[in-house]
Lab assay of single mutants.
Amino acid sequence: MTYKLILNGKTLKGETTTEAVDAATAEKVFKQYANDNGVDGEWTYDDATKTFTVTE
């Protein structure tokens, strides 16, 4: 399945996607991606759209 991440960081905004077997796996990938890019904030997940959002 394809999962999407929306980044609403103070210095980085954008979107990315990943292929993962489940939401938990996608979340690990996205949290590492956000961490690597210096984005740390509040996370939400919408199962209907398979979209994670992180907002600083």
Rank of each mutant, 00 (worst) to 15 (best):
T17Y: 15
N8E: 10
I6W: 04
N35H: 15
T51G: 02
K28R: 12
K13Q: 10
N35R: 10
T11Q: 05
T25M: 15
T18P: 01
K10D: 07
T2F: 08
F52S: 00
T51P: 00
T25Q: 13
T51S: 05
L5N: 00
T53N: 05
E27C: 05
D36T: 08
E19W: 10
T2E: 15
T51R: 03
T53I: 09
L12I: 07
D22V: 03
D46P: 00
T2Q: 13
L12Y: 11
G14R: 13
M1N: 13
F30W: 02
Y33K: 03
F30S: 00
T49I: 06
Q32R: 12
F30R: 00
V29A: 15
T25K: 09
N35L: 14
A24V: 10
G14Y: 15
V21M: 15
G38R: 08
G9T: 14
K13I: 12
T44Q: 11
T16V: 15
G41A: 02
T25I: 10
T2R: 06
T53R: 12
I6H: 06
K50V: 03
D40L: 11
K31C: 04
E19N: 09
E19Y: 09
L7H: 04
N8R: 07
T18Q: 07
M1H: 07
Q32V: 11
K31I: 07
G38W: 06
F52A: 00
K4S: 07
E56D: 10
K4N: 07
T44P: 00
A34F: 03
T11S: 10
T2I: 11
T49E: 08
A26C: 02
K4E: 03
K28V: 11
F30V: 02
G41S: 02
G14Q: 12
V39R: 02
K10P: 10
G38T: 05
D36R: 09
V21D: 08
G41W: 10
L5M: 05
A48R: 10
Y33F: 12
K28H: 13
V39I: 13
T49R: 07
T51H: 03
T2Y: 08
K10F: 09
D46K: 04
L7Y: 15
N35T: 12
F52C: 01
M1E: 12
D22G: 04
T53K: 06
Q32L: 07
T17W: 13
L7W: 14
W43T: 01
G9R: 04
T17E: 15
K4M: 08
K13P: 05
D47R: 11
M1Y: 10
V29T: 10
K50Y: 13
T49P: 02
L5R: 00
A20K: 03
K13F: 11
K31L: 13
D36V: 11
N8P: 03
W43E: 00
Y45M: 02
T2K: 11
T51F: 02
L7G: 02
T55D: 08
Y45H: 02
T49G: 05
V21W: 10
A20W: 03
T16L: 10
L7F: 14
G41L: 03
T11F: 14
T55R: 13
Y3F: 08
T2L: 13
D47W: 09
K28F: 12
T25E: 09
I6A: 04
Y45G: 00
E42A: 12
G41P: 01
T25H: 13
K13E: 07
A26W: 01
L5C: 06
L12F: 15
K31Q: 15
E27S: 12
D46Y: 04
E42I: 12
T2A: 08
A23M: 14
K10W: 08
W43M: 05
W43G: 00
T55E: 11
V54C: 05
A24W: 06
F52R: 00
D47K: 10
F30I: 01
W43L: 03
N35W: 13
T51E: 05
K31F: 07
D22E: 05
K13G: 06
D36S: 13
A20C: 05
A24G: 09
N37C: 06
